[in-house]
Design a protein around this nucleic acid. Structure first.
Lengths: 248, 248
DNA sequence: GCGTGTGAAGTTATTCACAGCG
DNA sequence: CGCTGTGAATAACTTCACACGC
């Protein structure tokens, strides 16, 4: 509580980074995943003409408590206005700055199968600060084709193109067999973050960030959730259940 | 994730006696997401001919500690063999049972754009117990086409087809504008779980499970991770830190 | 009044450390 | 021995509750 070394009632959000958060504190992982959701919801709210939003409204929209929303945001600085709430435009800018999407990221996609084409055509990337600047595939019949305005190049051109265009993030939509090799090559060419869709665990050198999305895994999570809620619902009413399929 | 399996605020009266049966305990949320990764890795290990695996090996492969692996697995029962480790085949079967993928789930995909086609062609689903039995699109030019062996039907047929084929899980790959309506209709037709790829927050009735995947959100997580590790690297240039950001 | 920011309390998840078994 | 399962200790996260500014 005694953090009034700098008691500045004036905050100019459009320029300075909120230096309020302790320098030594590391970023709580769970918070960041919600930040993206806040941002998505804020853009929708803003688009609907609403100028300001309260933590409880934002929370209700996403299924979180109001306290959660405030804690999450307060972790990075003071963005709210007591009695008013959060000004959408201001908060959008603040979250973008935190997430690092206030600048443009140049990304490359490797693997132009079904999934790769889906990524190439995904409009949500551009609007959030990600520009797809290159696509690669080892299948020569795909080379030269264009998807979403991006021409497919042979994988042999990976290194030079990544360097030439200043690609910093790589999306891997290849087969699991080639994913690790592609990751290694992209990193060697200067990529510092990888979004991996191949269903395999990649091992990367320190300093390179990794986010993995496995479609089968997501469905398994859903399977578990469904099986579990149904089991809970069945348990709800029956004190004795003679026909329960033996778990063992 | 806004909505997962919500837990009934019911007090558990019996807690003193060690209920040996694994059924009856609360669902630990974070554990389940790792279960899928264990499964994926186990299948690879098994495929390579290895019969047994230790918690430390499995952990090292995925970037977890050995204790984490053991705790996760022990939560659902006793699958290990002291001095030996875990027998792959045995553990695979056990995890499948926990996740609910030991039976077949019938799934439908709505929205046959780039992403929907990618999902239709994804081979990883079938091998993990998910059978894509139907696909819908409101674009009449796509109706009648076939992707991955599944014929595209008009969205008007959604209710009858879902009922006829016993679809229980729905994948939404539509525009964000129609996602909520599609979800409502699928649920009314009997779907009990939804995997949502549309970048919008869905509100679902209790009893229906939801998993959401937002591609832009995933990239934002990566952006944050990269910006953060770079900032950390710049801050501490001279300090030697062997435990930098772990994999995944 | 409304609505934020934040310590304190409460809850959940992870790591430690070691008993026990093949 | 090696390796699991698990209580105890630790850390991370979430909710509560309330002071304070608008």
């Amino acid at each position: 509580m005694p953090n009034e070394t700098e008691h500045d009632p004036h905050d100019d959000p459009a320029k300075a980074l909120p230096a309020k958060a302790d320098e030594g504190k590391l970023p709580p992982k769970a918070v960041v995943s919600r930040l993206s959701l806040y941002l998505r919801e804020l853009l929708r709210i803003e688009h609907s003409g609403q100028q300001t939003v309260s933590s409880s409204q934002l929370g209700k929209l996403l299924g979180f408590t109001d306290a959660q929303v405030r804690k999450d945001l307060a972790y990075f600085g003071q963005f709210g206005h007591p009695g008013v709430g959060y000004r959408c435009e201001e908060l959008v800018a603040a979250i973008r700055k935190i997430l690092g999407t206030d600048r443009e990221w140049v990304v490359a996609i490797v693997g132009v199968g079904n999934l790769g084409r889906a990524l190439l055509g995904y409009k949500g990337f551009r609007s959030q600060g990600f520009r797809v600047a290159a696509a690669f595939d080892s299948d020569s019949s795909k080379v030269g084709m264009s998807f979403g305005g991006v021409a497919v190049e042979p994988t042999t051109a990976l290194e030079t193109t990544i360097r030439d265009r200043g690609v910093t993030l790589g999306l891997i939509a290849t087969s699991p067999e080639s994913a690790q090799e592609i990751a290694d090559r992209m990193i060697a060419a200067g990529v510092v973050g990888i979004l991996n869709f191949a269903p395999v665990t990649l091992s990367l050198p320190p300093g390179v960030s990794l986010v993995g999305v496995d479609l089968a895994t997501e469905l398994e999570q859903l399977s578990f959730a469904v099986a579990n809620t149904q089991a809970a619902a069945a348990r709800e009413d029956s004190a004795e259940d003679p026909l329960t399929s033996g778990p063992e």
